[in-house]
């Protein structure tokens, strides 16, 4: 019985994998692909691994460890990717209707220019960041 429940959980998990793959293919730009790629794979892998753990109880501990690890690290890597993608947003053709981050970047850059014109040593805020 536990085996059938576990296998069904794995099946649901792999459906979420499929969903994230379809999202990666269908979504129009990198940010939206990230939305599908991160969320669906996180829940998908959790269900898939818990399902395998139910089928083989001696795998359960490690499977849960891996699921917890994925739940912790997957948002971090997608956050790093989103930051990188924001530097390339024009080239990516990403449509961002309100873009608060770009507005604040521009405000910071304008303030830096003003400070430099005033002769003070303005700290460089945007160290090593592509803005095209």
């Amino acid at each position: 019985m536990a085996a059938i429940i576990g296998a069904s959980l794995s099946l649901v998990g792999s459906l979420f994998f499929l969903l994230s793959a379809i999202g990666l293919l269908r979504m129009p730009d990198a940010f939206n692909r990230m939305q599908a790629g991160t969320k669906a794979t996180t829940l998908g892998s959790m269900l898939f691994l818990v399902g395998i753990g139910l089928m083989r109880p001696d795998f359960l501990g490690r499977a849960l460890l891996l699921a917890g690890f994925i739940a912790l690290t997957n948002p971090v890597s997608s956050n790093a990717l989103a930051r990188a993608a924001h530097g390339y947003r024009k080239r990516l053709g990403a449509k961002l209707a309100p873009d608060a981050l770009a507005e604040d970047d521009e405000a910071l850059a304008a303030a830096a220019v003003r400070d430099a014109a005033a002769g003070s040593q303005a700290p460089r805020v945007q160290e090593g960041r592509h803005v095209d």
Binding site: F16, L19, S20, I22, G23, R26, M27, P28, D29, F31, N32, Q35, A36, K39, A40, L43, H86, A94, K95, L96, A97, P98, D99, A100, L101, A102, D104
Partner: peptide
């Protein structure tokens, strides 16, 4: 809930998205 939301948006034929960055 977020996965159901992703499922709805990905499988919807018209892709109902209006992305932006908010503070």
């Amino acid at each position: 809930l977020s996965n159901l939301d992703v499922a709805f948006r990905v499988l919807h034929p018209k892709l109902p998205i209006a992305p932006g960055i908010v503070k």
